[in-house]
Design a protein around this nucleic acid. Structure first.
Lengths: 342, 342
DNA sequence: TTGTATGCGTTATCAA
DNA sequence: TTGATAACGCATACAA
């Protein structure tokens, strides 16, 4: 209910100067054991904790990790952010999270600078951008040596950031091998066109499909990646000649739509079609969905990210490079159905 | 790449004193039009924006809304937070979001003070707590007149906060009337025991079931509210004598588990059982799930919350009270199946 | 080892 | 109308 105690109050309570209190909380060297204890006792009694932001104002950096989440609605992003926060918290490193808000600018989608500028004003020692942003101009003015990690996205616009991402080629290798082993020879891919990861994922699919001697076609959906986009694209895919026996989807949400499209076609007597997703959201595991999906290793992504965010040497070593994390394939009923002859 | 310009730089560029620049950006009165334009031009050229936190240091409050999200994994919470943020952003009010991290303390679950203390150090003008926290001691020292809104939870521990929440009684009225109209006479409720909203929801169900002359039983699951908890509780419910013909679930996640339990029983020849969820997550809409569920009006909750967060008069009017938001029932296949005779 | 003085970027009070 | 100047809570070079 009352004002927070400051370094000043603690100094008065302990009968010392403010600087001494500051030294104790900076865990500086030369402070006598006696005074240190007096200060700590006074702080305890008053419930004092240092004001991190007043500290930030004075110091070149304030020792916390800034996390920018591109989209709160994407469960993968929030999972990566939360996992990272927990790993860091266990090491007593504080994180502050901001959402990037995407607004309509004169030339298309633009990232609102305000939330990011506010975060940067706090002088984070490092920055973690989770997910892909339409443009990164809001991050233009940053100290050159600040560790920046980008997850689940490329770092094209941030030349010295390090990108931690799932190995798309490995993922598509898993999917294509799995489908080939099941006997699939004609497969469609549905995904968006104009998203940062989209091109990588699609070309990885095409390359690995070719390698597995699978005949492949791509149906693109513009920018949407939700289930209705998946439904529409899957309907288009099912109309292809020859009809594919499997549909590889950009992500789980699109796959759910594809499942609906296949079910509707099946109700009309058409043969079943295998479906694969990407992200292995918990929904994919539900009995009724049971979707085969690529499991992005969130824990490993978070681990790699923290390693770089907290160690400047690691950062300069990987600066401008990519760290690829191996995915796994969670195999479920959506691809377990036997391939109908023909 | 370089340091952010300060009020100082702008003053030098415009050839005026720092105070004048400050006055312009405080949109204070007595500043000549000529100087104002000079300052604005200089600021524009340098790309200056005020540092909100240095400002906060001096001022009693810094004009932004602090949002604390209890659980990043809960899509309802992130939806409420994001919706609120957008409404506020449209009114040029900035929000900062922090996650509450729940850690194991000596006496059970405890809220980690650090993230919240850091947020409060920033001196928000108002505070929005989304979701329910095991304890609220981290919020103990707050100015008495600071507007505090709690969503999707009760505000028992924060005596003058205002709670914005879905009307549980109205929700259960919708569910019970719907089930009664379908001919259900024996219904089980499955839900957790030790969660803030749990008791309200359960007793609302019991009251409304009685009113609808429905015979009701409750199965509680401790603290877990995920699908495996739902699976277990539903199995217990299905073993009741007389066997219920419908199961009302605490939330959608538990309902998904209940759907699995019913499907497994049905595979063994047992009759179908109607299922209802709560939250109307987008998963509930998926063709394969098609779960009847209570739709909490996220937009309305966000609207009510912003009204109180931004208007001290509204806050003092509703302080210590609850604002109930009317839910709707999204009716889907999970309750559309005809009731089997007997 | 401890205390004093100054500055971080801003606001606010006072003279000029 | 404008410009010094003292805080805000803290860090740090320097003096005691």
């Amino acid at each position: 209910m009352t004002k927070r105690p400051t370094i000043h109050d603690v100094a008065r309570q302990a009968g010392v100067s403010k600087s001494l209190v500051a030294n104790v909380f900076r865990s500086a060297e030369g402070v006598s054991e006696k005074r240190r204890e007096a200060v700590l006792a006074a702080a305890e009694e008053l419930g004092y904790t240092p004001n991190a932001w007043a500290r930030a104002l004075r110091s070149p950096s304030s020792g916390f990790v800034g996390i920018v989440v591109a989209d709160f609605h994407n469960p993968l992003f929030t999972a990566i952010a939360e996992e990272t926060r927990q790993i860091l918290a266990a090491r007593d490193i504080f994180c502050f999270v901001a959402t990037a808000s995407i607004v309509d600018g004169p030339n298309g989608k633009v990232v609102d600078r305000a939330p990011i500028a506010h975060l940067l004003d706090l002088k984070p020692s490092s920055l973690f951008i989770v997910g892909s942003l339409p443009e990164l101009s809001a991050f233009a003015s940053l100290p050159k040596d600040m560790p920046i990690v980008v997850a689940s996205s490329s770092s094209a616009e941030l030349p010295n950031a390090v990108a931690v991402r799932t190995d798309e080629v490995a993922a598509m290798t898993l999917i294509c091998s799995h489908l080939r082993d099941l006997g699939h020879k004609t497969v469609a891919y549905i995904g968006p066109e104009k998203r940062p990861v989209a091109a990588d994922r699609q070309s990885a699919f095409l390359a690995r499909a070719k390698r597995s001697r699978i005949k492949s076609t791509c149906i693109t959906t513009g920018i949407a990646v939700d289930e209705s986009a998946g439904l529409g694209a899957a309907e288009a895919a099912l109309a292809l000649v020859p009809r594919p026996t499997a549909i590889v989807c950009f992500n789980d949400n699109m796959a759910f739509g594809a499942q609906s499209a296949v079910a509707r076609a099946a109700a009309g007597g058409a043969p079943e079609v295998a479906i694969t997703g990407y992200d292995n959201t918990y929904i994919a595991q539900l009995d009724r969905i049971s979707l085969t999906s690529i499991d992005q290793d969130v824990t490993e992504i978070a681990k790699q990210a923290t390693a770089i965010l907290t160690d400047p040497k690691m950062f300069s070593k990987f600066s401008g490079k990519e760290i690829l994390v191996e995915p796994q394939l969670a195999i479920r009923a959506s691809t377990r159905a036997p391939l109908s002859a023909g």
